[in-house]
Amino acid sequence: MQQARRTASRGANLGDFVFASLTRIAGVFVLVLLGAIIVTLFIGGLPAFEKFGVGFLTSTDWDPVQEVYGAAVPVFGTVVTAVLALIVSVPLAFGIAFYLTELAPQWLRRPVGTAIELLAAVPSIIYGMWGFFVIVPIMAQYIQPAVIDSVGELPLIGPLFGGPAFGTGILTAALILAVMIIPFIAATMRDVFLTVPPVFKESAYGLGCTTWEVMRSIVIPYTRTSVVGGIMLGLGRALGETMAVTFVIGNTNRIATTLFGPGNTIASLVALEFPESQSGSLKLSALLALGFILFVISFIVLAISRVLLRPRLKV
């Protein structure tokens, strides 16, 4: 009797052991493989780190002729475009999520939700081509001249909108990035809004609250941490985007002083310069070092989003 049970449990244990080991092996494999990518980058970037030291992070120089490289311009461009993209996309994504969970008629929710999610399925090179051929001309011919004429002379905010109207630049790149991350943030928001127990909302409606008041005082406080976590995931994606940004950012290794000014991001600079970098050169090393810095930035963003998401993940 006891033996039979033991055999049965051993059979189950064996199955469990095999499956658990399999998943564990896969986990370790991925850790080693992906860890190796990060380590390779660090080793590849070491000559640049050694040559320029901490100055690599603060120098705005990028001069392939003199072999002087600094990371400040692409790091600045990466952070600024990603943050601007968030400022644009979060309100839009929130509006979409609010509409999809509370306002839209039932029959419309699925098709509209799917359409918004499809924005995430468009390949990034297509976003680049669309941005370059559709958005850039609109920016160059209509929006930028109009803004420069109307706002450009104002004190304080005026200087933000100066410079020649190339159409490309920090703001255009941020707009394209915003479009790309809207579906991610909107989908996360919609999903967490749906996790709010109906009882809470119904009690508030019962008290005579309007839809907006229910959203503001019940749904948002209840889901705040998860919403911020979702936003951080969108930010992570914006940081590493290459092709779409490369097409529209203007690709200049100077710190942009205006929103219309050209700049560069880490991913874009690496993609542009890599094909013309010879193995063993300091330039290649500087590019790999930039890649490593990008990993560190994503690492920080993820760490923050982890901390913010934790309470909800435990439920």
Binding site: V30, L34, G35, I37, L294, F299
Partner: peptide, 17 residues
């Protein structure tokens, strides 16, 4: 550790991969 490395690579520029 696995989760962190995997998530960091979500936003890795694909040219580096």
């Amino acid at each position: 550790a696995v989760r962190f490395v995997s998530d960091v690579l979500l936003s890795a520029p694909s040219i580096l991969i």
